[in-house]
């Protein structure tokens, strides 16, 4: 028996977000440090990288907006999540005793969602300012030139953690996001409160 965890639309939106994020992220890293400039050759050289970066960011903005709209109602942090976050270190050491049962998303996933949402807002606003130096006054560009990479670092660090969790730490989590289905045993192990709610229906 299989349980549907993510609909086709959710998965499609997630992976469009992921691909545009990686494209914007790698082209951004190429322009962030001279030592990473070699990445630009993968994307067709410096000018092509500079041209593609804001467009990849625009695609990312649109699909992230869709993802935000479809998941935001499941992402509100409640009292149980506060307890979960206090026990997050214990959770990280694979000791789940006393860690509250997670709903459709656990508190760590919710924190990632909100961190990415805020970082993305900063990235879009500052990215627009930096897109063309003739669009915005110098004062705005001076702020943007600092907060754009700062927000990107927060975002990329969060995504490194996200990929590690989804691919390595939680078995079959990647499968759930690719094919959309999980087993009852998986749902019990990782999102027990969500599973209980489904069963109650």
């Amino acid at each position: 028996m299989k349980i549907e965890r993510f609909t086709f639309t959710e998965r499609a939106v997630h992976w469009m977000t992921a691909i545009s994020f990686v494209y914007a992220g790698l082209t951004g890293l190429a322009l962030w440090s001279h030592k990473l400039y070699w990445i630009a050759s993968v994307f067709g050289g410096g000018p092509a990288t500079r041209f593609a970066h804001p467009w990849a960011g625009t695609v990312f903005a649109v699909v992230l907006g869709l993802m935000f709209r479809s998941w935001v109602s499941s992402m509100r942090l409640d009292a149980q999540d506060q307890v979960w976050l206090r026990k997050s270190l214990q959770y990280a050491m694979n000791d789940h005793h006393g860690v509250p049962d997670a709903g459709r998303f656990n508190a760590g996933q919710k924190m990632l969602f909100w961190t990415q949402a805020v970082a993305a807002l900063v990235l879009f606003a500052s990215g627009f300012v930096l897109w063309n130096p003739t669009w915005m006054p110098r004062a705005a560009r001076l702020i943007a030139i600092l907060v754009h990479p700062a927000a990107a670092l927060v975002s990329i660090t969060g995504i490194i953690l996200h990929i590690y969790m989804g691919v390595f730490v939680v078995p079959k989590a990647l499968h759930a996001m690719v094919r959309g289905e999980v087993t009852p045993g998986w749902a019990r192990a990782h999102h027990r409160a969500w599973y209980a709610g489904l069963k109650g229906k």
Partner: peptide, 23 residues
């Protein structure tokens, strides 16, 4: 932050490994 994230994940896996797949 970036190098620390990658290295942290690597050593975390060596020390703690994956969670159980099914309950």
């Amino acid at each position: 932050a970036l190098a620390g994230g990658v290295l942290g994940a690597f050593f975390h896996y060596l020390k703690f490994g994956p969670q159980q797949e099914e309950a």
